[in-house]
Design a protein around this nucleic acid. Sequence first.
DNA 1: TATTGTTATACTCTATAACTATA
DNA 2: TATAGTTATAGAGTATAACAATA
Lengths: 163, 163
Amino acid sequence: MDMEARGHREHPEALRLWLRLLTCTQLIEKQVRGQLREQFDTTLPRFDLMAQLERNPEGLKMNELSRRMMVTGGNVTGITDQLVAEGLVERMDVEGDRRAYRVRLTSRGRKTFDEMARQHEDWIVQAFGGLSPRELETLHKLLGKVKQHQIDLNDLNQETENA
Amino acid sequence: MDMEARGHREHPEALRLWLRLLTCTQLIEKQVRGQLREQFDTTLPRFDLMAQLERNPEGLKMNELSRRMMVTGGNVTGITDQLVAEGLVERMDVEGDRRAYRVRLTSRGRKTFDEMARQHEDWIVQAFGGLSPRELETLHKLLGKVKQHQIDLNDLNQETENA
DNA sequence: TATTGTTATACTCTATAACTATA
DNA sequence: TATAGTTATAGAGTATAACAATA
């Protein structure tokens, strides 16, 4: 249960933080994956894809999904194929570009997702039940800084690569 | 890059926090995995296993590794086999129990791990470079609460299962 | 030529369950 | 019977690269 027994040395604070971040995420993620599987016979990437579409009712192109889900294109094709086969999403033509699709939820997909999202929210609220609203807000803010810094680093690296 | 476009509804704070936590972890983890692969031709679970052993020079039994790494036993066997084949760890007999081993780093393994750990620490320090020492500490504390709450929930569930 | 999306492939990681050997 | 560890298997998840169609 304790994978924080890893780091040491000169900047132990950052390492300790990283290992704890990893542990927290893994604990919650493992629980969510299990529940999604048990209760809805689905997976986190599939739930993730549907969640992206739920926020974009007009649909998203494959490459937009790929970027938002942070996985490569081939995987999005695979997940989309599964969801299409189950009638939860559909591929719509994009007028003006016959290479591309817009993927969007079917009405059945929307209904199914709503049920899952309601449960999912309960699990998450419970997972963070140990924090006060104030602590929750602080955590969110600090992680926002981490995220932005990470994005900045990525941008820097890409500039270096393209130079 | 933005998978936070998922949650909504009644307790959006917890959901937003969860999605941000997931994003941060994935961004950093992806970077660490890539670097481990590029620079040391190894993987995160292998690094993890070696890190556990580095903290326990006298070695750990397979089931102890399994628990600490939060994966099932079969996987530990597989990863250990790889590391043994490369001469980085070794299986030592446990006196008094012929079923069990203690796995520990070889001296070559220790040397290899030290190099990796030094680099790894640099990556992590850089990843959290956007935070002040104070913010780092706050984040660590709050995540500690999340972790403990998660462990408490797990314990509760296990009691229920065994009842 | 570049872009959109698909296909094919391979590899890592994981869990489950059946198994062997020892306690 | 219970425990330590292994083996076998299956599936999720991912990246890479070659490819077809269109821009």
